[in-house]
Design a protein around this nucleic acid. Structure first.
Length: 426
DNA sequence: TCTGGGGTCCTAGGACCC
DNA sequence: TCTGGGGTCCTAGGACCC
């Protein structure tokens, strides 16, 4: 954008993919258009994405699979295990398209992004947003809803309202903003969760509009901390949620539930080694090193059990999988109690800094980092798939691995696996 | 019997210091 | 017999998000 661009008011658009994971699966199964389908969490534990038709049957996001099973069977709902490689691939394509429509794209999650709309002439917001939706739908096949407003909180509310209305796009300001907020429960606002909504309801602040009009700042702070105050101010058109810098994670985690109970220490070591490999790969991917490691084990069942952790901090941060894995295994051995059963494990990397500016200890010898070996490992795994090359301590049997009974077929694992077909009408 | 995984931000309270 | 006030840093836990 040139600096001579007209000074129009700041506006944001939120582009939000509709039931994203379901839409991704449906791309490869056009026969499921208009039919109910659900995507399951890792380990096939609960429902994380539901098509509109599935919601209409009374199924709920987050519901455990064993409670949903009967409805699913009765109505022949199509069921998929989650396939993050596919979703990530399609997400990148959607984001690349959105990027063409704004000088500043802020990717917020796998299926949502904020677009700076300041370059759109006032009055053209909905037309422009509608155009974006049509383009993404045509080129990629994923439906998105676009909400526009003076702040991010309003843009979020607008996209939610657009979905509800079945509209491709919605710009909220003036009277339309007021009537929409009056009809919206305060708990449906971005940043107001269930706990906070309960507190607000107790004080008679029931709708989004009630919160917007509430002048007792001290009370808002007391109930919701500064987070709630910011939501209220955003509703008033004050732009106060700064761009979250998602470029570098300050903490990297990798945790999984097991497919079945684990008793054996060696199995735990394998699992934790595997998660350590994933986490270090992410760490190197963002060009960082970590100074601390926490190992987490869940003893007992996934719901009633208790989590136990142990951590270690080292003087010179590292990104070397071998080094971190040795530490992780030592922590597993410290935590392990024979006779106990475990349902889940994980690793957290923290004290993360960019590799270049890591403060190394004067006394400690520099740890191996960014070695050619790690580079080669990452390159191979990127090309041939995660886990092609890994530490021996990760094991080969991996009995503890999670369930994925409904994974879509191998040919649909990655977009790039697809055969390109051109058809011409004669 | 069965309930995901990966993040961020904020606050209260303890430890410690002068 | 008597026992301040203020600051910083760290950590655990709560709440929220997708």
């Amino acid at each position: 954008m040139s600096s001579t661009a007209p000074k129009w008011p700041k506006r944001y658009a939120l582009a939000d993919c509709n039931t994203f994971y379901c839409s991704c699966e449906r791309l490869f199964r056009p026969d499921l258009r208009g039919k109910p389908l659900v995507v399951l969490s890792n380990n096939d534990g609960c429902l994380i994405s539901l098509s509109t038709e599935a919601k209409a049957l009374g199924l709920k996001v987050g519901a455990p699979m064993h409670e949903a099973r009967e409805i699913i069977r009765q109505h022949k709902v199509a069921v998929f295990s989650s396939n993050y490689q596919l979703y990530g691939n399609l997400s990148r394509r959607v984001m690349a398209t959105l990027d063409e429509y704004t000088p500043d794209l802020e990717i917020y999650s796998i299926d949502e992004a904020f677009l700076d709309f300041s370059h759109v002439p006032p009055g053209d917001e909905e037309a422009y947003a509608t155009q974006i939706r049509a383009r993404v739908l045509r080129d990629i096949g994923i439906p998105v809803s676009v909400g526009v407003g003076r702040t991010k909180v309003i843009a979020k509310a607008a996209s939610r309202a657009a979905k509800k209305l079945g509209a491709p796009a919605l710009y909220l300001e003036g009277e339309r903003l007021e009537s929409t907020l009056r009809a919206m429960d305060v708990g449906d606002l971005w940043g107001v969760g269930r706990r906070s909504a309960d507190k607000l309801h107790g004080r008679g602040i029931c709708t989004a509009w009630d919160l917007r009009q509430h002048d007792n700042t001290a009370l808002i702070r007391q109930l919701l901390t500064v987070t709630g105050e910011r939501v209220r101010d955003e509703l008033r058109g004050v732009d106060c949620i700064r761009q979250t810098d998602l470029a570098e994670k300050r903490m990297i985690t990798s945790t999984r539930s097991f497919g079945k109970r684990v008793f054996d220490r060696r199995d735990l070591e394998e699992a934790v080694s595997t998660f350590t490999g994933f986490a270090c790969e992410k760490l190197r991917g963002q060009g960082s090193v970590a100074g601390g490691l926490t190992v987490y084990l869940r003893a007992g069942s996934s719901m009633e059990g208790t989590g136990i952790t142990a951590q270690v901090h080292w003087d010179s941060p590292t990104d070397d999988t071998g080094t971190v894995t040795r530490e992780a295994i030592a922590l597993v051995r410290a935590l392990y109690r024979g006779g106990e059963s475990y349902s889940k494990a994980g690793v957290f990397l923290w004290d993360i800094v960019p590799a270049g500016q890591a403060q190394t200890s004067f006394f400690a010898p520099p740890p191996p980092q960014a070695s050619p070996l790690m580079g080669a490992m990452d390159a191979i795994n990127l090309k041939w798939g995660r886990g092609t090359v890994k530490m021996a301590s990760c094991g080969t049997k991996q009995d503890w691995r999670m369930l994925c009974e409904h994974r879509s077929g191998k040919t649909q694992l990655a977009w790039d696996d697809l055969v390109e077909v051109r058809a011409e009408r004669s």
